[in-house]
């Protein structure tokens, strides 16, 4: 199926700003789905609130646009009853890790078969550029006019600690890697997290004098390195990208089936 057969064309052009990385995530998420030869009826996309979350309106899957930070909870309810469907939950960094941080770590802990995509633009874009839990120390936002003194999360370390069984990071510059990682993540049986560094030229770029979309993507090119590379040792400032965790552990829906078996056996 062609990539554009997966979208609801009537809603294009989309609402995202010129050069927004979220469109690149959408573009290559569809390619990953195409790579896996998934049918539209096999996919449920659940999203929360924010720029990132509008992605669910554009794809011709079963789409559930929910409330800020809670997409994973809704997805959990769907997945438990439709385990045969692929659950994809794209979230912004604020959506996933500020208001939704608790749900995020608990979904990871359960290892429920859901793919969480964190479209990390380091800012609250929809509301006009406030700093997020991933903006990082020393950055600026409309609510940090002098300097942001909040330290950022490391999504990869957080996901690992919380128990996610697939953890990866890539960027909007590295589109081929993005397709491969997203396909692996969706294919993974368990809770998968993919952090995608995604530029917000309108707010994060402008507030922090990082230039336009192309400058920000060039930054991803120049300041990242494949996970485990020698360059990281020489230059610890580099951000690693690639797959950090990929392990098979019992999945939550399967585990619950065991509970059902035990409960039924107890009646005999």
């Amino acid at each position: 199926m062609a990539v554009k057969d997966y979208i609801r064309k009537r809603f294009f052009p989309h609402i995202w700003c010129p050069g927004c990385g979220h469109g690149i995530v959408l573009n290559n998420l569809l390619r990953a789905i195409e790579k896996l030869k998934l049918k539209k009826n096999e996919i449920v996309m659940t999203s929360g609130i924010g720029c990132s979350s509008r992605i669910s309106g554009y794809v011709d899957f079963h789409t559930l646009h929910t409330i800020h930070g809670r997409a994973l909870c809704f997805a959990t309810g769907v997945k438990m009853n439709r385990p045969e469907l692929k659950l994809i939950v794209p979230m912004g960094d604020g959506d996933a890790l500020a208001i939704g941080g608790n749900h995020f770590i608990h979904a990871a802990r359960r290892n429920i078969d859901i793919t969480a995509i964190i479209m990390n633009n380091r800012i609250y874009g929809m509301t006009g550029g406030q700093f997020s839990p991933l903006s990082g120390y020393g950055t600026k936002g409309t609510t940090a006019p002098f300097m942001n003194i909040d330290h950022g999360f490391d999504v990869v370390e957080l996901s690992k600690a919380a128990g996610a069984t697939f953890v990866a990071r890539t960027s909007t510059y590295h589109v081929k890697q993005m397709v491969d990682i997203l396909a692996d993540a969706i294919d993974h049986k368990g809770f998968s997290v993919v952090e995608i560094m995604s530029q917000c030229p309108t707010y994060f770029g402008r507030k922090n004098k990082l230039g336009g979309a192309t400058d920000m993507m060039t930054f991803y090119k120049d300041h990242t390195t494949p996970v485990g590379s020698k360059e990281k040792k020489a230059n610890p400032e580099l951000i690693e990208r690639g797959i950090f965790v990929h392990e098979d552990l019992p999945e939550y829906c399967n585990e619950y089936d065991k509970v059902i078996e035990m409960a039924k056996a107890s009646l005999k």
Binding site: C20, I24, L26, V175, M217
Partner: peptide, 11 residues
């Protein structure tokens, strides 16, 4: 294909 894949607008 890089232009097609990196196009945020699927254009």
């Amino acid at each position: 294909m890089m232009c097609e894949m990196r196009c945020p607008d699927l254009a």
